[in-house]
């Protein structure tokens, strides 16, 4: 398979009242064509910022991409002109957000919002674009799409708005969809409808998908590969099987043990990760996870670990070999 996206040493910082926040601090990973990558980690660890950086949607000030490369279809997106970047956003990479209301225009009909990008990016005539928009709304299973296209976003339920967002993204036949917590605000059954829809669409069109979520079940079901983030860095990456069956970073191990599982009959006590999530403006020296880590050794207090292979395509950033405890 060919590489679609290569993120290399990406750094995005924010200058805030509390000090410099290294929201994304040296993140590197690849994404192949047709692959679904899951991005997990606690609130504030830099998941959204790392995704927004790919599309250069970081508000400046206070934020800035200070280093790195984002190679997409052979070009470094951090180097191209803003005009070219707009074309990438409209035609090649689609983004779906958690709260669709913030990205839908309340004053335009849903049909208009889906058809407008088609006019701009694909030079379609107004009428043809509207017809295509209805088709797209049908493809995301909005009932009575022709009629619904004339409605405004606030007439739509949360699930329907998210469908409309997906159809907007699909209009340009993107090769990559980035979905940032696309279903977190939705009910379980609607969440399942949407994720199955996204899965079907990506499969049908051979698209890659980056799915950001804190739900470990969603990642297990939909992703082939997983990046686990902690305090602005990737601390472990691997295939979903690697991450779920053979987690190597103490944070990943902790996450897995702290969620209840539906398929366990016996009441097992949950094993929480002790302590509090990190404050990115005030990170400790050394490994940022060390204050909460039960495996930490002297070295962890002073030196920040980098990603090292533990196996083929499986990497972790941790000084301790969990199995031997060294």
């Amino acid at each position: 398979m060919a590489k679609l996206l290569e993120v290399k040493n990406l750094k995005t910082y924010f200058l805030t009242d509390d000090g410099l926040v290294r929201a994304v601090d040296g993140v590197s990973y690849d994404l192949e064509e047709g692959e679904t990558l899951g991005l997990v980690g606690e609130s504030g660890c830099g998941k959204s910022v790392s995704a927004l950086s790919i599309l250069r949607l970081i508000p400046y000030p206070p934020g800035k991409i200070v280093d790195g490369q984002v190679i997409f279809e052979g070009r470094d997106l951090l180097k191209i002109k803003e005009e070219e970047m707009r074309n990438i956003r409209g035609n090649h990479i689609a983004m779906i957000f958690q709260e669709p209301m913030t990205s839908l225009n309340p004053l335009l009909t849903v049909g208009r919002q889906v058809s407008e990008p088609l006019e701009i990016h694909q030079n379609m005539k107004k009428k043809a674009a509207l017809q295509q928009a209805v088709k797209l709304l049908e493809s995301v299973k909005i009932p009575e799409a022709e009629l619904r296209a004339q409605a405004y976003p606030h007439h739509f339920s949360g699930g329907m708005r998210q469908r409309a967002m997906i159809s907007m993204g699909m209009g340009c036949n993107p090769s990559l969809i980035i979905a940032d917590e696309p279903t977190t605000a939705l009910d379980v059954t609607v969440q399942a409808q949407l994720l199955e829809l996204l899965k079907g669409l990506t499969k049908e069109h051979g698209m890659s998908l980056i799915i950001i979520t804190h739900n470990l079940g969603v990642v297990a079901r939909y992703a082939n590969r997983v990046n686990v983030m902690y305090a602005g860095r990737i601390v472990e990456m691997g295939s979903s099987i690697d991450i779920y069956e053979n987690p190597q970073h103490p944070y990943t191990i902790g996450l897995m043990a702290s969620v209840p599982r539906m398929d366990q009959d016996v009441k097992q006590k949950l094993i929480p990760i002790e302590g509090q999530p990190p404050d990115l403006a005030n990170l400790p020296e050394g490994c940022p996870f060390h204050p909460r880590c039960k495996y930490a050794v002297e070295k962890c207090l002073h030196e920040t670990p980098v990603l090292e292979p533990v196996d083929k395509n499986h990497k972790k950033a941790c000084w301790v070999d969990i199995k031997s405890g060294k």
């Binding site: 379980v188 059954t189 099987i241 969620v259």
Partner: peptide, 14 residues
């Protein structure tokens, strides 16, 4: 439907 909609953190099972 509700139970089947909840994904389980186990890729092999899913």
């Amino acid at each position: 439907a509700l139970l089947s909609a909840v994904p389980i953190p186990d890729p092999r099972l899913e």
